[in-house]
């Protein structure tokens, strides 16, 4: 048994084997018609990794193995709802101490109890199978407009915020939590600590696994370049007025955090939304 936070008994070996297969495509188009010009290009990558060998214990259940699955998938209990009443708890397999407001876990192997054998490997990990982007630009006379979109799909991210008596709740959980006065809440009851709750860290489950697909406008810029006739009047060599924005909007199902983050406790700094207005002048 290897010590915690120190060298393993047996030296690490590079014995894992992963194959990745996929396609990559880029398509671009530019056109100019008099004062009007435009262009567009897009890229698309589909890459699926497959773990061919990883040093797993021989007794790991087939549906829990990493081997044969993509990298970074999660082993999770399947959350299939929230207990609303004691009768519901009594008639389904449940954990010791389950109470109304707790997540219902699927008895995947149908043995009448919730055990580690009910954990199932997730379809996707937090490495996207699909990443894509698009760059658009338009020009009309002295005006130019460009935009960069980026996105990912077929990807999951597990985020259980470290919440509890220390606070630190996402508002969607705090506002929609099950409580004796909000028995229809869409989130489980809150606990002293999420990481040691049967709705959280003790039984990591699909409730906290989000579809981290997104499409994000990474950058957009609108500019106006002053024509030469006006420049000489102002004794300038060049001048350009612009307004640009980063991360102006994101289309995603993730509600509470940045879908580009990859920390399971949600502890990452989100990408900022930045809007600049500026002038570039040279004399």
């Amino acid at each position: 048994m290897n010590p915690f936070g120190a060298d393993p008994l047996v030296p690490s070996e590079n014995i894992g084997k992963v194959s990745s297969k996929g396609v990559e495509a880029t398509l671009g188009y530019n056109k100019r018609m008099g004062k009007f010009s435009y262009g567009a290009s897009g890229n698309f990558t589909y890459a699926k990794s497959n773990i061919e060998f990883i040093d797993e214990a021989p007794g790991v259940l087939p549906y829990q193995r990493q081997t044969g699955n993509p990298l970074n998938t999660y082993l999770l209990y399947r959350a299939i709802g929230i207990y609303r009443t004691q009768e519901e708890i009594d008639k389904t397999p449940h954990l010791n101490g389950a109470q109304p407001g707790d997540l219902i876990y699927e008895d995947y192997n149908k043995d009448g109890q919730i055990t580690a054998d009910d954990q199932v490997r997730s379809q996707y990990g937090n490495i996207p199978l699909i990443t894509y982007g698009a760059m658009l630009n338009f020009g009309y006379g002295d005006f130019d407009l460009s935009a960069v979109f980026a996105g990912q799909a077929k990807v999951s991210q597990y985020v259980l915020p470290e919440s509890g008596t220390v606070g630190n709740f996402y508002s969607s959980w705090a506002d929609n939590r099950w409580s004796p006065t909000n028995t229809n809440g869409s989130y489980p009851r809150v606990d002293t600590r999420a990481s040691s709750s049967i709705n959280g860290g003790l039984y990591n489950n699909t409730f906290w696994l989000d579809n981290a697909s997104f499409l994000r406008l990474k950058n957009i810029e609108l500019g106006y370049t002053l024509p030469a006739s006006k420049l000489s009047l102002l004794h300038m060599q060049s001048a350009r007025l612009y307004v640009n924005a980063f991360n102006l909007f994101t289309i995603t199902k993730v509600k509470d955090y940045d879908p580009e983050g990859n920390s399971g406790s949600g502890q990452f700094y989100p990408q900022q939304k930045i809007i600049n207005v500026g002038v570039n002048v040279s004399f």
């Binding site: 010791n96 101490g97 580690a116 954990q119 002293t192 003790l202």
Partner: peptide, 15 residues
Amino acid sequence: DDNTWLIQKGQLAPE
């Protein structure tokens, strides 16, 4: 806590 509460609460399990 430090991984004691789950034992106090009877949630001790192989995993």
